[in-house]
Amino acid sequence: MSPRRTPGAYNSVAVFGGVYSNHIALEAAITDARARDVDQIICLGDLGAFGPNPDKAARLLREAEIPVVCGNYDDSVARGLDDCQCGYTDPRDNQYARLSYQYTFQNTSPEHRAWMGTFPTELRFQLGELSVLACHGSPRQMNEFLWESTTPTQFLQKLALDGQADVILGTHTGIHWMRSWGDLSTPGLIGESRETPAGAYVNVGALGRPANDGRTEVWYAVLQAKARELSVDFVPVQYDHEQLAAEMRSERLPEEFVQTILTGWWTTCLEILPGKERARGRF
């Protein structure tokens, strides 16, 4: 990695989230990010869910010394809560969410649970001259879903103003997208005025399962800034998804979860998808 200018100040970062115990994709993403010579790699939480042997992903992150923001799954596992805090009401979604959570909880070591209890709910850093707030769901609520089709720009602007940040990073939904408003190269008015400064929101996607698009790759984001000029690249990660599927089957995880990995279409936890995102999927 190239030397940092000061701790917490970078010119480039690789950011991923929603690992969902997909340790094979995680390893591939870390390798890919390192090859890009980024200043820092950051994880936005939800280490467990859907996938097999959750301790493997946790071990990889700890060995790589990657800072992790707390996701709702990590929070639930660390505190031994009854569910993943996704808020499903549909009986089918609830059933699969429960299976996923119980498996993950039972197979996460006490040591890793304790480690998850140390995750902060947000990380702040400088990217170039931009102030960045990295969280799991939204800055105000760890388990808030910010979908592209149900998140108005006016709402993002309020989050950025309230959070005193130029750029907000999140994950939680599992589908990557971004939106910017105004001209970021013009210094913001944050702290001086309630007028709306320029900003950007980036949902970095998820490494744990595909983006409900019929492709087997998973996604993360590389952000770079030169002064206040931001560039964002969404990076598809190809990995041995068939090996992951085999491992999931050997752990007797639901076939519905395996099919998502093999086909790229979400089969469960569909209730919370808005109409536009749901219509793009198969189920």
């Binding site: 709702n72 929070d75 639930s76 505190r79 809560l81 805090q85 996704c86 808020g87 009401t89 609520q141 760890m142 388990n143 879903f145 209730e271 919370i272």
Partner: peptide, 10 residues
């Protein structure tokens, strides 16, 4: 559309 859900602060 999606019922109220909260983060567990217990």
């Amino acid at each position: 559309n999606v019922p109220g859900y909260a983060q567990d602060h217990s």
